[in-house]
């Protein structure tokens, strides 16, 4: 009886598997496909844009505009840490356009021969943010040296952290962080939740977070500028559409949206 039960269960599992797999890929599983699963419409062309975390809001807006201008094109924005995105692309993730928050990740993709001529389309700088009401009374970068404060920064291995290292060197400040996050949004979330007393994020993120955070003016920050490059992938499924999206971002329409979000001109 027990054996019969087990084989019945196996058959049930098999039928679920068969019913569940719309694509006939049972014979050759593909283990390396990473995170994105673009929601493909029936006959639509999908344009997959890999964008730095700090670009998420702007690119969502630009994607909507692009879709309105190009009926039948579905733009999927995959945002995350620039370095992680670059690694996913190098490992074969299906991107059509890549926009990074620094030149190093783009360089890595270029060395792999996957993009040809990246263009810098925006600049950004860092800013000190505190939770609404500034409970710890943070007024300058020097406050980041106070041991008793909870501080969130980006890890050095991601662009916002690398820019932070330059900023602290310029300002001769040695911060005492409590956490080094993997992307800028994670820092911002922890500030917005009030779990840390201060964090360093991009100027543009302060606007995204709305009333939950307040900015603290840091004169040194203006001198440390992050440059954002964008490029269509050389192996894009629809090179013409990818190039058009890059044109939208680098053109006047993109400029307006980017400026509105607080990004500087290249």
């Amino acid at each position: 009886m027990r054996r019969a039960g087990a084989s019945a269960a196996a058959m049930a599992a098999a039928s679920i598997l068969l019913a569940g797999c719309a694509a006939p890929s049972v014979g050759s599983p593909e283990p390396t496909t990473p995170t994105t699963t673009p929601a493909t419409g029936s006959a639509a062309t999908t344009l997959t844009v890999f964008a730095a975390a700090s670009l998420a809001t702007v690119f969502d807006e630009l994607a909507e505009r692009f879709e309105a201008e190009h009926p039948g094109v579905d733009v999927v924005v995959n945002s995350g840490g620039s370095g992680a995105l670059a690694e996913q692309i190098v490992q074969g993730a299906p991107a059509d356009v890549f926009a990074a928050a620094a030149e190093a990740p783009m360089q890595r993709v270029m060395e792999a021969g996957l993009v040809a001529a990246p263009v810098v389309f925006a600049t950004n700088s860092l800013e000190l943010v505190v939770p609404a009401g500034n409970p710890a009374g943070v007024t300058s970068l020097e406050d980041l040296e106070r041991e008793e404060l909870r501080i969130a920064l980006c890890d050095e291995s991601v662009p916002c952290g690398a820019a932070g290292v330059r900023l602290f060197a310029d300002a001769a400040v040695k911060p005492v962080p409590d956490t080094l996050e993997s992307d800028v949004t994670a820092v911002l979330t922890k500030v917005a939740l009030g779990e840390v007393d201060a964090g360093v994020v991009y100027r543009t993120d302060v606007r995204t977070a709305g009333d939950a955070v307040e900015r603290v003016v840091v004169p040194e920050a203006a001198s440390v500028v992050s440059r954002y490059p964008i490029a269509p992938m050389t192996d894009a499924a629809e090179p013409a559409i990818a190039a058009e999206f890059v044109q939208l971002v680098t053109g006047d329409a993109g400029r307006t949206v980017l400026e509105h979000a607080g990004f500087g001109a290249p």
């Binding site: 969130a152 890890d155 291995s157 991601v158 409590d178 956490t179 080094l180 996050e181 993997s182 922890k190």
Partner: peptide
């Protein structure tokens, strides 16, 4: 817990970073 070397940065987090 966040991610601070020696305090909260465990192997999986170190690997991801």
């Amino acid at each position: 817990a966040g991610s601070l070397p020696g305090v909260t940065r465990t192997l999986p987090i170190a690997s991801y970073l």
